[in-house]
Amino acid sequence: MSTAAFIVIAILMLAGALAAATLSKLIHAALCLVIAFIGIAALFFLLGAEFVGLVQIFVYVGAVAVLIVFTILLTRHAEEPTSGFNWSGVLVAVAVFAGLIWVILQTPSLSAPAPVIEALTVKRIGEVLMTDYIWPLQCVGLLLTAALVGGLILVMEEKR
């Protein structure tokens, strides 16, 4: 893991996330969210979890971002200001950030270097998924089916 790559990716990712949270135009915020998600996938690659990084790009950049853009398109008719901002939320977020940073810096055991591990192959992930994690896998399949049916029912035109 190189520090230069880490710093560049982290700055890009946080800048994208901050822009997604504060920009007033929804479509710009959605595109900045894509930058943030690509940055997170790059951090996954840097950490040696290539499969999760690819899943992150497929699911978030490929599916969720397109879903958000289509929802913006379908609800765009309202010409109301989208830039409403509640400053007490900023206060809560800064307080949570300060608390988390304080806890992280108080813990001495976190500065250990990364151990050398053998690369995690997709074959190994598949084996573990089909043996130890078979019940969670089935439950996630059921959940995705329920979400599909529920999403369809929610957006179906009502018969009058």
């Binding site: 946080l14 949270a21 007490s88």
Partner: peptide, 13 residues
């Protein structure tokens, strides 16, 4: 990143 997400969830309308 978590704090930025919290900021977006709490302060936007």
């Amino acid at each position: 990143l978590f704090s930025i997400g919290l900021l977006a969830a709490l302060s936007r309308r």
